[in-house]
Design a protein around this nucleic acid. Structure first.
Lengths: 340, 340
DNA sequence: CAATTCTTGAGGTACGTAAATCAAAAACAA
DNA sequence: TTGTTTTTGATTTACGTACCTCAAGAATTG
């Protein structure tokens, strides 16, 4: 049987009330006594029964998710997953609020964070734009002891509790490994299309991609990355223009959103098509994989990311460490052959 | 606030004791009254607070994992993950027992299952060999209301609660997609090496692979599958022999274990190497990826599988449905570029 | 009708923890 | 020393559920 607070009281030779004071950081206990209790905790290997504690505390976890608005399919899917997760709220004792903010606007994220009172929030998850102001706004929560996780896109310089997303350098490297092997000895250019280089996920993908291409596939040369703000129309224009003027483009890597534009630019064409690797499995990219326009899609399961964020925030709010291995989000590779 | 048993009693106009009798299926309640209570439950959307219930019941979940013994790295890793999970037992109220059985021996699985008393077990996870006897032995638990999940390899015909593993047809199809694209227009043979065709995972991989190769890459012809019982020495012999006598082997797909033998067979060779796709990231396959002997590894994260099995078994033991999307195990594709 | 069985209610205790009160004891200062 | 403050103990209630007992009421049987 695992030890209880009563066992701790016995072992330490103090009363239950004192154990409670120590365990919950309440004042009025001599340093000496604190150490007696902590010793007993260590000796018996006591771990607080979180379920019982939550029951007694009538604990709920008010969580806030900050996600970009706009037509981006991936983000809308993310929002859907957050709503789905919040439907399990009664069971999980969470109370989830979603704040949508204009995309690509660091100020909007800062404003949203500023509106939140760290006192009334148990945890924050934010799809971050990587700027100094955003990092500072995030830091305020961390200072106040409120766990904050980044979702999908990280804040590399900050002390956020956790990053709930894929390893984007590895994703970029994977894309390069695939394109390099698919191109199989051909020489030529690879067009790289990005959303915004203020997003750490896009930066990481681009740099991982460039690394592997340079070191392993020297016959392939990178064009770009072209910045499109994840806007379909801009993607279409950039790709169509490049394909027209550069006949030696053998492959395209779209590491941002706006796959719709990419599909449009490709679908009207005649002759040999470039190999295409893109990100995020949505209705459009699914279709493009199926009809052979895309060769592979690198995907992150945003349902997993959302659930992971919730688990991490809850654990951190209880002062526990999350199970690290469990919270690593995997990079999915989809081809026409293994579509779900 | 979510409703409690007290609210149900009020709403239904009965006493707490009666609500308790209905909710826990105790006898001595008129059908009419049962319906009143069930109506109230539905109207108020009552969900039992599992944490509080477990506290009151002093519930623990005695779980049994049945895994094959032997030198197979993947299985040893699986066992390690089960042990790691059982270290969190005090928090999760689980009590995990591991039964190792001789590999490729359906009788041994049947015997292990027979030794278990459904009365004293809250759930069973088994790495199954797909035979009628094993299915029958599993059925005994399902009949007794004890949840049983299959781990890594499924029992397709059975009524197991859940399969904690990857979609192996999709894995086989992915392998074919990769090999087909890597071979890029070459014609020739693809050697397929399997462990045992009594394992449903191997069957599924082989058939998924064959499907895609036939439909999308007609220039590639399958040799095999060769059955090796996941024995490294046999794999080595089979591969070395094939490579010697069939000069037009352009690729190898090892869908079973025994990568060590495959590496041995490949590493001494001169000249152009075949493209290689194998399964499971272990120390050996990691190394082989790194030095270019393997092109890609399809992996399943057995830590995820174990944790998923535990979640599903616990949920089912409480009469709850697991979160489906959460329990889908993903197919990882590793190349030299995105090794963890 | 009474005797019997079935059904329901009322109330209590327990699980492990949180949080509070009040009194007693100990430590400290003047 | 006395008075004051700090520290500790003892005890209680609560969280939501499970499970138990005992008694009373309702329905059924002969």
């Amino acid at each position: 049987m695992r030890p209880t607070v009563h066992d701790i009281a016995n072992e330490a030779g103090v009363s239950l009330a004192t154990v409670d004071r120590v365990l919950n950081g309440r004042p009025g206990v001599r340093r000496q006594t604190v150490e007696k209790v902590e010793g007993a905790v260590r000796r018996l290997g006591y771990v607080r029964d979180v379920a019982a504690a939550n029951l007694a505390k009538r604990r709920v976890y008010p969580l806030v998710f900050i996600v970009p608005a706009g037509p981006n399919s991936f983000m809308r899917n993310l929002e859907r997953e957050i709503r789905a997760a919040s439907e399990r709220s009664p069971v999980e004792r969470t109370m989830i609020r979603i704040e949508t903010v204009p995309p690509f606007d660091p100020q909007a994220i800062v404003a949203a964070l500023s509106r939140l009172d760290p006192e009334t929030v148990a945890g924050v998850a934010v799809v971050a734009t990587d700027t100094a102001e955003v990092r500072a706004a995030a830091e305020r929560f961390i200072e106040a002891g409120v766990p904050l996780v980044t979702l999908v896109s990280d804040l590399p310089g900050s002390r956020r509790s956790h990053f709930c997303g894929i390893d984007n350098r590895a994703a970029g490297r994977t894309a390069a490994g695939l394109i390099g092997r698919f191109a199989a000895g051909q020489a030529g250019k690879v067009l790289v299309v990005a959303g915004s280089l203020t997003l750490s996920d896009h930066i990481d993908r681009a740099s991982g991609f460039a690394d592997v291409l340079a070191s392993e596939f020297p016959d392939l040369e990178i064009m770009g990355p072209v910045e499109t703000n994840d806007d379909g129309a801009m993607v279409r224009k950039a790709v169509a223009g490049a394909l027209e003027h550069q006949p030696d483009i053998v492959a395209i890597y779209n590491l941002g959103a706006g796959n719709r534009g990419l599909i449009e630019a490709l679908s009207g064409r005649e002759g040999h098509q470039p190999r295409v690797v893109a990100h995020e499995l949505t209705a459009h990219s699914h279709q493009a994989l199926k009809n052979g326009l895309f060769d592979a899609i690198i995907n992150q399961d945003c349902g997993h990311e959302v659930r992971s964020a919730i688990r991490v925030l809850k654990a951190r709010a209880d002062g526990l460490d999350p199970v690290k291995a469990q919270e690593r989000i995997r990079i999915d590779v989809f081809m026409k052959d293994n579509l779900p």
